[in-house]
Amino acid sequence: MTTLMAERHPSDPLFRADRLPHIWCPGCGIGPAMHAYAQALVESGIPLDRHVCVSGIGCSGRVPGYLNIDSYHTTHGRAIPFAMAVALVRPQLEVAVFSGDGDLFAIGGNHFIHAARRNVDLNVICINNFNYGMTGGQVGPTTPMGARATTAPYGNYEQPFSLPYLAAATGAVFVARWTSLHLRQLKQAILRAMKKRGLTFIEVLAPCPVGFGRPNEIGDAMEEMMLYRERCVVDHGAPLAALDIDLRQRDHPIVLGNFVDIERPVFDPLAMRRPAPEVEDHAPLARKEQEG
């Protein structure tokens, strides 16, 4: 049997297939991550019309435009406040924020920390490609120390965010980190996040061959994927403070895993206004039923 040619992919009903091929560069890591998310949508058992995907600006912000579900492309950094409103007004919906590291942690950094502190019922999936890819490879809040970028020709001298550490410290109930290569694990993590109530955070390390790879002597996307394969170590119980990514030290592992899985009360702004439930309202009724 040889190769057979096809016109459509079995996953096409989940995408707006008329817009494919997408605009992302050859070897971009957003595509596989979006595929894992799309498969998780089906496997979650929640009807597709109850899923909502919100994004901000950037390469990753394009994701909702390619997904065949209710999806919103909002202003820069404001995906979380938009999604928070959707989640609060329609609690029956499963709301995901699918955006990039620059959008979520630089421009929208404050929104993320406060949504995590309040524990809003959102699933945040952050594509981390270590730079501002769409605007031409500038230094972002996750660019590793020593990495070169358009705005750091001698190497970056800023301490980057460790996103899982930040998410755990601000109160996220589920925190994971996977890559565009660890797709089955990523899908399982997204499914776990969809089951959980409260703010869940999944970081996806993704190759950016044009914006990040080229100035950092990573030849192409394949080389960056191979780098993940060689240097990634799965350790669910890793200390959160030791999750830094250091590209300069070749023997420094990149730790992956589902680091945090806890329970915490979910954000409910009207909780204090509501009268004490059950006892006053339903007790007489229940008594009447018992007597009758």
């Binding site: 992919h9 996953s11 494919l20 070897g27 595509g31 595929h35 565009s180």
Partner: peptide, 12 residues
């Protein structure tokens, strides 16, 4: 795995 890892949804 080819189907999962393909960024373009071009193989299955």
């Amino acid at each position: 795995f080819c189907s999962l890892v393909c960024p373009e949804y071009a193989i299955y």
